[in-house]
């Protein structure tokens, strides 16, 4: 039985409809922690063999081990998503080890830096955000396309509500997250004839990055929760992971080019 409070109910085990991804292979970038790790856990619990693609083994190995300890298939591959060779090697490794690729999830993004207007963003923090969100989406798409066409599979990009409505305090982050929505819509049109679906998830969840932001600004969580109809911040594995499972599964076989906002109802503008 789940807890009585809203927060406890949010921690309930994800209901993913059983092993709906049995036999499938997934790569999740930025899966060493936070939302990427939550999505990897959910995809693995749904039956997919998962590749934890992360820049640092210190995060990636434990994330993969945690999934294996739960009885699922997972492997860590070191990957800097801004490097074409790394992304291609990660795809090659997934295909070599598991026999193909069905699901490519690009989640990694560089830190947004200190909140503030665009004129206050540190100059050297602009290009890394473009590289990890925009360039890397292109690299992940290009590298996975031949394999996704064969299955046919699906590409999922992690965007943000800020990528729709903009952000006063994280304007570069909002901008690069918006580029991913443009990529999703156009790739959905480009790849649709091959049966490859492309969608985005715009989550809000309590991740290590969010916890750091809350620590720095204790009012942040209160303000975020206050604008969230479900009254709590999301849980990466229990709330966001199942959305990825749905988009990757045959239940979503007629869904492409869409952004699913998984934020407890905070953003209602679509």
């Amino acid at each position: 039985m789940t807890g009585d409070t809203m927060a406890e109910r949010g921690k309930a085990e994800p209901r993913t409809g059983g092993r709906v991804l049995e036999g499938q292979v997934a790569i999740i970038t930025g899966a060493g922690q936070g939302i990427g790790a939550g999505i990897a856990s959910a995809l693995a619990a749904a039956g997919a063999a998962v590749v934890i693609a992360a820049r640092r083994a210190a995060n990636g190995e434990p994330a993969a081990e945690s999934i294996r300890a739960a009885g699922h298939e997972a492997v860590f591959v070191r990957c800097d998503v801004t490097e074409a060779a790394d992304v291609e090697a990660t795809v090659d490794e997934a295909v070599k080890r598991f026999g193909g690729l069905d699901i490519m999830v690009h989640n990694a993004v560089a830190p947004a830096g200190r909140p503030g207007g665009v004129q206050f963003t540190r100059s050297d923090m602009i290009r890394p955000q473009i590289a990890t969100a925009t360039t890397a989406s292109f690299l992940c798409a290009r590298a996975s396309l031949p394999h996704l066409r064969r299955r046919p599979g699906t590409l999922i990009l992690l965007t943000s509500p800020a990528g729709v409505e903009g952000s006063a305090n994280l304007p570069i982050y909002a901008t690069v997250k918006a580029t991913q929505r443009g990529i999703v819509k156009s790739l959905a049109r480009e790849w649709g004839p091959d049966g490859v679906r492309v969608n985005a998830i715009a989550p809000v969840a309590l991740t290590p990055a969010m916890e750091a932001a809350v620590t720095a600004n204790p009012d942040l969580e209160t303000r975020l929760v206050a604008r969230t109809p479900l009254g709590r911040l999301g849980d990466a594995a229990a709330d966001i992971g199942p959305v990825a499972v749905f988009l990757a599964s045959s239940s979503a076989r007629y869904v492409t080019g869409q952004t699913i906002v998984a934020d407890g109802g905070g953003f209602l503008g679509l």
Partner: peptide, 12 residues
Amino acid sequence: ALAEGLRVLARS
């Protein structure tokens, strides 16, 4: 991608 990024940049 460029167009959507710029559209949301204007909002920010």
